[in-house]
């Protein structure tokens, strides 16, 4: 068998081990909380930038819609419509296009719309 005493090894008391373990766990938390704060800051910056972009593009889309075909603005209510599965989040997609997409998906899947749950519809842009 190997004589492990050849290697320089540290024998810790149980007290020292306990302190090292707690300190280590705290260091891991500290490191990741620090990272979380940094990511939250960068995330909020990018989110606000995206929101601005979305607002601008929504305005542009609305302007285009108004110029092309005057449509009645949908009345937004907090309660979902009877028989629906809830709200669908739209990103850079006008209501009219969203309705068309949902109808096409339902048609392709051969399923009635009230049996499908759309979570969100987003326009994929080339970057």
């Amino acid at each position: 068998m190997t004589d492990y005493s050849l290697f320089l090894m540290r024998q810790l008391s149980i007290g020292e081990a306990g302190v090292t373990a707690i300190l280590g766990y705290c260091v891991v938390f500290f490191g990741l909380i620090l990272l979380m704060c940094v990511l939250c800051c960068t995330g909020s910056y990018f989110s606000s930038r995206d929101t601005k972009k979305e607002t601008e593009s929504a305005r542009t889309a609305k302007g285009v819609q108004n110029n092309a075909v005057p449509v009645q603005t949908a009345v937004k209510t907090s309660e979902p419509a009877p028989g629906s599965a809830g709200h669908v989040k739209l990103y850079d997609v006008p209501d009219r296009e969203a309705v068309l997409i949902m109808a096409i998906v339902a048609d392709k899947m051969q399923k009635p719309l009230n049996e499908l749950h759309f979570i969100s519809i987003r326009e994929v842009k080339d970057k």
């Binding site: 373990a21 280590g24 938390f29 490191g31 990741l32 909380i33 990272l35 990511l39």
Partner: peptide, 19 residues
């Protein structure tokens, strides 16, 4: 980013096994 807290918490076994 709150996921990082879960990643930190899940290192508990490392230090308990060390002890």
């Amino acid at each position: 980013p709150k996921s990082l807290l879960l990643g930190a918490a899940a290192q508990m076994g490392v230090f308990l096994a060390f002890f």
